[in-house]
């Protein structure tokens, strides 16, 4: 069966090669995520004024990036997948930022 699979692979070299992510990477990412959690909880105990939400969301985004790139294999995926995810996240951010900027600026100068 594996011989046939290899044969098919040579016939269609365009397709993306399957990459197996090993335990080492997973362990490093796992500890990275635990450290990120510890860091964000610690930061929430420090009074940073308006920077508390910014830092919490920045750390959350860092953790999310680790999850997406390594646990969800995006770093090793095809260009089509990467482009699709990038376009999706861009659309999502555009929707959120345009909605929020409307709500924040609607009563501009009237308070």
């Amino acid at each position: 069966m594996s011989e046939q699979a290899q044969h098919v692979e040579h016939e269609h070299p365009v397709e993306h090669e399957h990459h197996i992510v090993g335990p080492k990477v997973y362990v490093v990412v796992f500890f990275g995520l635990l450290m990120g959690t510890a860091l964000t909880v610690w930061a929430s105990f420090v009074d940073l004024g308006p920077w508390n939400p910014v830092i919490a969301l920045a750390i959350a985004t860092g953790k999310a990036t680790l999850v997406v790139l390594y646990f969800m294999h995006v770093k090793y995926s095809s260009k089509l997948t990467k482009l699709t995810i990038g376009a999706g996240i861009f659309t999502f951010l555009a929707l959120i930022s345009m909605t929020l900027s409307d709500y924040i600026s609607r009563a501009w100068g009237r308070w």
Partner: peptide
């Protein structure tokens, strides 16, 4: 091929 199938499913 198997690769094409798995690409399509992941997508």
């Amino acid at each position: 091929s198997v690769e094409q199938q798995s690409d399509a499913t992941n997508f």
